[in-house]
Design a protein around this nucleic acid. Structure first.
Length: 723
DNA sequence: GAGCACTGC
């Protein structure tokens, strides 16, 4: 789908630039959305909230912000913000639009994602991840103002702009793209944006009034809401802020849900550009869909014309066994029919191996991509003409009763099936083979259950509490999570000490936890560790726990990988093992030139990871998180110290913050989960596998002392943990 | 002696 652009890099000749500009213009005009530019701009002028339903290939993400810029929505320094669920999308789209505008990235057009911000004061079209905007919106204004007064270093803080700007007054328009994906970030963000929108049309008047006439009450208010006032005073007091325009962009027909949520907001439809895809169902139910998939792959290979195949499977295991099955079946074919290669892609696959799916197949060969649902949205593979869809997906679910999350293989939804089949029609007409009966399709749910209804809500609840939302159950969610899930999170946050007995944000613990971009349990661990002089160790641990598995064990080199891992193993457990790995990577770098550019450092680390059987993507990510969180905790004034060889305090802090995940050794030698009493085992990949670590309970422990855990007495003296 | 879909701050 990449438009035929010419890179500007070293093309100095004006002729080439003019040529490129003409091609860009031609491409832009050919997009379906180009024909409705005036109408869309008009609708945005007329409506404060607009829903745009546009299928893939309409050009909505790249073109709409440019139309609005042209129509004058960025006058007086105003910014158009566009959110994306994924980092890659924010980056690639921003680069493309900058090119279309003929400006350097970071000038008129820029992107802002965690660890990477290319925007400047002159940026008018700003692409960002929805998670980042959510963070920005939800940081508490008054708190921030107080800390800024206390700590002048905070002036350099990344999100200062928003800390000072609760009404997002720099933005004229916020476009929430891919809203149909309904990520937890999108859902919460919509709720907050809705209230910001209301605040812009009501509260500002309030503050405007009160800036002009100072009554006694107003003086009091001013004291409480210092931030907003100071901010407001900077504005021209007689001028009202224009309303915040919201545009929700969605690919499927979920417009009704959004429209209803935004009080009947208008929805407009823009045609996409897709090729027809013929849908085929099986006639007889086939319970073994892997077998059916392999058979279908071969049928396509032998019976159809050229074109690559994309198969949707549920996970790494299925992908690997399908690969073997296909190879076996190919051997039974005559040699000239074996020109078929299989390529796996899933997120934990090292990136250099992922890249292979994008390369064209060798001449005369057909490519078969075996993918998880990474290929549904995150990755678009060119050349796909045939899609095989067994109709299953591995999805996360959450049981509020036990507080446990699990991954289960479940049937997909109708909209997911549609999304999958669409992958066959991106470059020309295609075919989709659904390995289930047509009647089964009609039994599928309409759309996938939004993430907010199937995961742990602790973080969301904490953010909302920090924003001053008293009653979470009454919060205006687009779709309400179950009451029990909310109650469970409140309970967890209370046990972690983030909420008081009245379920109000505690100070300073809850407030500090809400400011850290981490799972609340990790935030708590850091705060606790700062008290017990082992924050250095805890910070490494939290960074390493926040990423995918560090150790990489390829199937064919299990023994070698295990030997490499032994070198870092700590008999005290997995957390200390992770610390060993992190510190080893530091020592490796210190031996080299410490002043190298980040790119060089990353390159060296990748090599080091390969030698030591580690996933370099994970380690580099953990190092990024480490420095990001370090900045945060330094700004919060937490005390970073190391416990050195005395790891007891550190392990106590672990126990005191991860107590929700604690299992106790029983008399018979088994372990039981502290919460539900479920029997659990030490995983074979753990450093402690094969050992029987002890946990000695304080003598006075009894069931009704659960609350003691909440007050974190655990960390002080009574526990002796070997983990 | 075995697992872990996909994102994001």
């Amino acid at each position: 789908m990449a438009p035929p652009y010419i890179r500007r890099c070293d093309a100095k000749s004006r002729k080439v630039d003019a040529f490129a500009a003409r091609r860009i213009e031609k491409h832009r005009k050919s997009l379906p959305i180009a024909s409705v530019e005036e109408r869309l701009v008009e609708e945005v002028r007329k409506n404060d909230t607009l829903i745009i339903v546009a299928e893939t290939g309409s050009g909505k993400t790249t073109q709409l912000p440019q139309f609005l810029f042209k129509a004058g929505f960025c006058r007086e320094g105003k910014v158009i913000g566009v959110t994306q669920p994924r980092r890659v999308a924010a980056v690639t789209v921003a680069k493309r639009v900058a090119e279309e505008c003929g400006s350097d990235l970071g000038q008129k057009v820029g992107y802002s994602i965690r660890f990477d911000d290319t925007t400047s004061d002159s940026t008018r079209i700003k692409y960002m991840t929805d998670g980042l905007l959510l963070r920005v919106v939800s940081l508490r204004v008054v708190d921030a103002m107080v800390s800024i007064v206390k700590d002048p270093r905070l002036v350099g803080l990344r999100h200062l702009e928003a800390l000072l700007d609760p009404y997002l007054s720099r933005y004229s328009i916020i476009i929430v793209d891919e809203a149909h994906e309904r990520t937890i970030h999108t859902d919460v963000l919509l709720g907050l944006l809705k209230s910001v929108q209301m605040a812009r049309s009501t509260s500002l008047n309030h503050y405007q009034n009160f800036a002009n006439k100072k009554t006694k009450d107003n003086m009091l208010l001013e004291k409480e809401n210092g931030a907003q006032c100071i901010n407001f005073r900077k504005q021209d007091q007689r001028r009202k802020l224009p309303p915040l325009k919201l545009i929700i962009m969605s690919a499927s027909m979920d417009a009704g849900v959004f429209s209803k949520y935004f009080e009947g907001a208008k929805a407009v439809r823009v045609e996409g550009r897709r090729f027809p895809v013929q849908i085929l169902y099986i006639c007889l139910d086939e319970p073994n869909y892997l077998d059916a998939a392999v058979t279908t792959i071969l049928q396509i290979h032998l019976g159809e014309g050229p074109g690559d195949v994309l198969v949707f499977l549920t996970g790494k295991d299925e992908i690997e066994s399908t690969e073997i099955l296909v190879k076996e079946r190919l051997q039974q074919l005559p040699e000239n029919s074996r020109k078929l290669i299989t390529l796996p892609i899933f997120s934990s696959l090292p990136s250099e191996k992922q890249m292979r799916v994008f390369a064209p197949a060798p001449a005369g060969f057909r490519k078969v991509i075996l993918a998880t649902n990474i290929a549904e949205t995150s990755v678009t593979i060119p050349g796909i003409k045939f899609v095989i869809d067994p109709g299953f997906v591995k999805a996360r679910s959450y049981d509020p009763r036990t507080g446990l999350e699990s991954l289960d293989v479940v049937p997909i939804s109708k909209s997911q099936a549609l999304q999958r089949s669409g992958r066959a029609g991106r470059e020309g007409p295609g075919k989709c083979y659904r390995l289930y009966l047509e009647s089964k399709f009609w039994e599928f749910d309409e759309s996938t259950t939004p993430e907010i209804k199937r995961c742990n809500l602790s973080n969301v609840v904490l953010q909302l509490k920090a924003l001053g939302v008293e009653d979470i159950v009454e919060f205006d969610f687009i779709e309400k999570p179950s009451r029990s899930a909310i109650v469970k999170s409140l309970e967890q946050l209370f046990l972690l000490g983030a909420l008081t007995g009245e379920y109000k944000l505690s100070d300073p613990v809850g407030r500090q936890m809400s400011q850290l971009p981490l799972d609340p349990i990790y935030s708590k661990a850091l705060i606790l560790a700062s008290e017990f002089n082992c924050l250095e160790e805890m910070l490494i641990t939290v960074a390493m726990l926040s990423v995918e598995s560090i150790f990489y064990v390829p199937r064919e080199r299990v023994e070698e990988a295990r030997a490499a891992m032994k070198f870092f193993l700590s008999p005290q457990g997995d957390h200390l093992t992770l610390i060993n790995v992190y510190r080893a990577s530091n020592e490796f770098l210190e031996k080299k030139n410490p002043d190298l550019a980040k790119e060089k450092v990353d390159k060296m680390l990748r090599k080091w990871c390969k030698q030591n059987f580690m996933n370099s993507r994970s380690l580099l990510h953990a190092r990024d998180i480490h420095s990001h969180i370090l900045r945060h905790i330094e700004q919060m004034g937490l005390h970073v110290a190391s416990c050195g060889d005395d790891t007891l305090q550190f392990r106590r802090c672990l126990a005191a913050s991860f107590f929700l995940n604690v299992a106790l050794k029983q008399r018979d030698g088994t372990y039981r989960d502290l919460k539900g009493g479920q029997v659990v085992q030490i995983h074979p990949s753990s450093a402690l596998f094969g050992t029987k670590p002890e946990v000695e309970l304080p003598r006075e422990y009894s069931c009704d002392q659960d609350l003691v855990l909440g007050e974190n007495k655990l960390g002080s003296a009574n526990w002796h943990l070997s983990c």
